[in-house]
């Protein structure tokens, strides 16, 4: 079943209610052919479980790693991802777009 943005935010509330630490990542800006629209969410818990999508799979791994830092530190973070860099092995978008993702802890 496809998860809608609604299911994802409802899950964030449920997870927090069940005592899990939770971060919410939101696509806040896109340039070029970005895979997921502005406003898309990824919800991450303290164990690295996640629900939703901010890029259709390209950068979720990196966002989850950053989210664990945000859960630990408490301050929100703005992440930016661009075209995949062939020489350095790091997260990028093969479609050629760029996205900005805001990651915040649910308190």
């Amino acid at each position: 079943m496809l998860s809608t943005e609604d299911d994802i935010l409802a899950a964030a509330q449920d997870w927090r209610g069940a005592g899990r630490s939770v971060a919410i990542a939101t696509v806040v800006d896109t340039w070029g052919s970005a895979p997921r629209p502005v406003g898309s969410h990824l919800v991450i818990d303290g164990d690295g479980n996640f629900l939703g999508s901010v890029s259709g799979g390209c950068v979720e791994g990196a966002v989850v790693t950053e989210a664990l830092d945000v859960i630990a530190a408490g301050a929100p973070k703005m992440l930016e991802f661009g075209v995949a860099d062939e020489t350095a092995w790091r997260a990028g978008l093969s479609c050629g777009g760029r996205i900005k993702v805001y990651v915040e802890r649910l308190d």
């Binding site: 609604d6 935010l9 409802a10 964030a12 509330q13 927090r16 919410i24 806040v28 703005m78 805001y102 915040e104 802890r105 649910l106 308190d107």
Partner: peptide, 25 residues
Amino acid sequence: MRLDLLKGMNEERLNRRAAILVTEI
């Protein structure tokens, strides 16, 4: 995000009312 804001968003959505969360970057 404060949990009460998220609860508020979810509640408005359940009741089919529009709402906007404003976040100062």
